[in-house]
């Protein structure tokens, strides 16, 4: 009868979170509403949004993603809190890193859906050159992986406090700075039409890869202490 491995159990937990969100719509709509509102306000704030520098727009984009993401991540463990399911979850034979990866994967899906919506909106509002969309997608994925690793880990810590919505940004923001600076620099280069060789030569990809690797490992190992 036994035969469900680590990956299958982790995937089952991720599917559970996605199914719960599909039914409750508690996480994604607030993230989308926040992202769209900020994009709209920024578009009206700049004197001539269509001529804003690539770096300014890239900064706006990633700040919007950052705070939209934190809104969603703060709810990471809400479904477990509702009916005391965390105890039941802690009593399943699955390494704690499995719970971490399942939560991070669900957060990654939510964040990706926000970005799929947000990037074209920014493209429209700020007349961005999105011809390098494949490269941009790579940058987004690399930033997102580190972002969800840090966000999920700190969300598990913050979930055990009363003011978790406040604690999460305080814990996560300082740590996330390198990933978001890299995201801004790479996106700005892409929006400005820089070539792949120029972008690669600046080393930001390496920083992102290093950041992702470090925080995936730290998250997987540290989650046990955070959640217990």
């Amino acid at each position: 009868m036994s035969g469900v491995g680590f990956v299958a159990k982790t995937a089952a937990l991720t599917r559970k979170d996605l199914r719960v969100e599909a039914r409750s719509r508690d996480t994604l709509p607030p993230m989308l509403a926040f992202a769209f509102t900020v994009a709209l306000v920024l578009a009206f704030t700049l004197p001539d949004a269509t001529r804003a520098s690539a770096k300014v727009v890239a900064g706006f984009l990633w700040i919007t993603v950052l705070f939209a993401g934190l809104i969603g991540f703060a709810r990471t463990f809400e479904v477990e809190r509702e009916e005391g399911a965390l105890d039941a979850l802690l009593l399943v034979p699955l390494d704690r890193s499995g719970i971490f990866f399942s939560k991070a994967a669900a957060n990654l899906v939510f964040l990706a859906l926000v970005e799929v919506f947000l990037v074209p909106v920014f493209g429209l509002f700020f007349s961005l050159d999105l011809s390098s969309w494949l490269m941009l997608a790579l940058v987004v994925v690399l930033v997102d992986i580190g972002f969800v690793a840090v966000g999920t880990l700190f969300a598990s810590l913050a979930s055990q406090t009363r003011s978790r919505e406040l604690i999460l940004p305080i814990l996560a923001l300082p740590v996330l700075v390198p990933a978001f600076i890299a995201g801004v620099e790479l996106s700005a280069d892409l929006f400005a039409g820089a070539g792949l060789d120029d972008i690669a030569a600046r080393g930001w990809f390496g920083i992102l890869l290093f950041f992702d690797a470090v925080f995936l490992v730290v998250g997987a190992l540290g989650f046990e202490f955070a959640i217990d």
Binding site: R19, S24, E83, G84, A85, D87, A88
Partner: peptide, 9 residues
């Protein structure tokens, strides 16, 4: 004391 169930499932 709590059911330990996911209320949306």
């Amino acid at each position: 004391h709590s059911a330990g169930l996911y209320s949306r499932l």
